[in-house]
Structure formats: structure tokens, C-alpha cells
């Protein structure tokens, strides 16, 4: 990864996208289920507040990484999101990138003295 390209704010935004993609990895979900699952699986560390979920969901849908479909449930229309093949590939590739960034960050934070042998 070229160091010049790294954008810390973009990285934080990407994390939110990846959290949503990972929440959809196992099965299609409604928006509120995505919020709850991310919160539960991260023990409350990652929380979506003030509707920040929807702009991300709708952008991912526009980019073809997730697919939103309306289903009828007890007379009400509900929107369910599922991961597309493109989204799955994106998640897999970006997970590797996040691992790389985090491992570099940890290396910097620990300093050369505490680096593992």
C-alpha cells in the first residue's frame, strides 16, 4: 500500500462500511438488525447513532456491494439487505488491508524496543 494514499478519516469511514458488510456476511438483514448485530458482536464498541447507518447502506447499495429488496411482512413492506458477490470480494480484500494498517499502527505504537522478536 503506498503511504501517500493513506487517509485516516477515509479509513474510519471505510471501517463503518466494512462493519455493515461483515454483518451481512451470514444472512440478509433489516437495517435495525445490522445496527444491533454490530453493537452486540463488538460488545458495544461500534455503535451507529443518529441515522448514520442509512447513508452508508444506501451508498453501498448504489455501488452494488449490497442489494436491498422490499419484502412484505404482515402487510407491511420491509427492506432487507443482502451481500452481493462484489460486496463479498470487497469485504475480503479490505479486511486484509485493515489488518495491514492495524499491524503497522501497533508496530509504531509499541516502538522498536517492544517489537516482537
Amino acid at each position: 500500500m503506498p503511504e501517500d494514499d493513506f487517509d485516516i478519516q477515509g479509513f474510519a469511514r471505510d471501517i463503518n462500511e466494512l462493519l455493515i458488510l461483515s454483518a451481512l456476511r451470514s444472512e440478509p438483514k433489516h437495517g435495525y438488525q445490522i445496527v444491533l448485530d454490530i453493537e452486540n458482536e463488538s460488545n458495544g464498541l461500534f455503535r451507529f447513532r443518529h441515522g448514520t447507518l442509512y447513508p452508508i447502506l444506501h451508498r453501498l447499495e448504489k455501488e452494488g456491494l449490497i442489494r436491498g429488496t422490499w419484502s412484505k411482512d404482515v402487510g407491511r413492506k420491509k427492506k432487507v439487505y443482502s451481500l452481493t458477490g462484489k460486496g463479498r470480494r470487497h469485504l475480503s480484500g479490505e479486511t486484509g488491508r485493515v489488518e495491514d494498517v492495524v499491524s503497522r499502527l501497533v508496530r509504531v505504537l509499541r516502538g522498536p524496543d517492544q517489537a516482537p522478536a
Binding site: 437495517g31 455503535r47 443518529h50 441515522g51 442509512y54 444506501h58
Partner: peptide, 20 residues
């Protein structure tokens, strides 16, 4: 709690408007 989590604030509404 539902409103706090899901109801969009002005910034989220603006981002939604940009997207749509």
C-alpha cells in the same frame, strides 16, 4: 433508544439527500 440509534440528524439527512 430507537430514535437515538436510527432517526437521522441533519448531517445524515444531508448525506441521504446527496445520495438520492
Amino acid at each position: 433508544r430507537a430514535l437515538e440509534a436510527l432517526a437521522p440528524d441533519a448531517a445524515s439527512l444531508s448525506r441521504l439527500a446527496d445520495l438520492h
